[in-house]
Design a protein around this nucleic acid. Sequence first.
DNA 1: CGATGTCATTTTGTTGACAATTTTCCGGTA
DNA 2: TACCGGAAAATTGTCAACAAAATGACATCG
Lengths: 228, 228
Amino acid sequence: MNEGGKGSERAIFEEIHTAIIERRLQPGTKLGEEALCEIYELSRGQVRRVLVELSHSKVVELRPNRGAYVAQPSVREARNVFEARRALEAAIVERAIDRVTTSTLNRLRAIVEEDRQALARGDREASIKLSGDFHLCLAEIAGNDVLTGFQRELVSRSSLIIATFGEADGPECSVEHHGGIIEALEFRDGRAASCLMEAHLVHIEGRLRLDVDAGKSPPDLKAILSRG
Amino acid sequence: MNEGGKGSERAIFEEIHTAIIERRLQPGTKLGEEALCEIYELSRGQVRRVLVELSHSKVVELRPNRGAYVAQPSVREARNVFEARRALEAAIVERAIDRVTTSTLNRLRAIVEEDRQALARGDREASIKLSGDFHLCLAEIAGNDVLTGFQRELVSRSSLIIATFGEADGPECSVEHHGGIIEALEFRDGRAASCLMEAHLVHIEGRLRLDVDAGKSPPDLKAILSRG
DNA sequence: CGATGTCATTTTGTTGACAATTTTCCGGTA
DNA sequence: TACCGGAAAATTGTCAACAAAATGACATCG
């Protein structure tokens, strides 16, 4: 019954991280130390370390003397993350083509199938997580831990970006896109896979509201109005 | 006179990081907490945070209950880092071509010139740092903070890899290669720049002793000798 | 009515003492 | 000499009390 044991720190990290990625914790939400201590029965020192870890993975922002908050990506950051993703996923697909096997293909298929079922029963949270898992699994197939680490960071940040700038409505098409990529991998058609991945990412980014005006400006608005 | 002030934590981080990158601290060196406390006049808590930060940037390895050591990259890790670098630097060059200006070109030229002078006076440490700065500066020209962050990590790790698997002798050719890349950028010749960068990285990796046998085995050696 | 300043409360940051673990040293034994 | 224990020293990990800062409530003033 050791809730406050040793390895549990990693577990708490995963729990909070997943909650943010699945958008149960919205951008800007404050993560008070005392609150987390009570929820997870950890000491403040442990909670503090977890928060540092989360900030390092870019899903939490640490404001000195102010506390920890779920990160609120800027428009610029959003563009940069997606630009980096296009470059990184291209490299990953290129390498995955050479290393994909029947077994790894089936892992990808299983993820997409789970995603399809999640969407069918309206479980949006699970679908978000599974869509990310697809891209992560692809990185693992590429067989380079460094690239996988980068991919992990970018996939997490993408989810946060979509939570911030995405529209809640609209059809979900990850399943179809991912299916297409699997097919291209199956035939070891590198060019097709790259193009489909590129199109997939462009499609996702295109659905974001990245007009510089929209996003975030409660204090800026007052400054602007004071001039009128 | 506040050596133990607030912002000094970042300064100590940079100091140790630089010492590792310049190979004054060799891979495997133990970084004892007490020792660092005395050297920098910091509390243990502060030193501890710096060590966590360094481990997060992959130049220090934290072994639980054992302490902090300058990281010793494995052969596999070395290959992965260089593979990732080839992909990342290609993306960076591609974007830098579109954004390079006279001013940023001059920054690159200044770095290479400093590097040339450092080599001329036999200052190998400075040369190592400056070679890394060139690649970092290139990433900054590309204008994407995410890519720059990844590049920073990879450049640091590369230096550690060269310290571990590189040969001390041999001619240094970064200055020539970097000069060529600058020229290609000047003429906005993306293809030439990419090829030169690729060749540069392949050349560096090719000079490493990445035979799986060679690398690391002080305990293994004893085991081998016991058979003779 | 809004703005400003002060004080109590809450939250975050730091330190030093204590606990747990590892490393080192040393004597005993075959 | 080589090889085990086992205590002592050194090192790392943890926590709880204390200090510092931010937040919110409230009174005062324009």
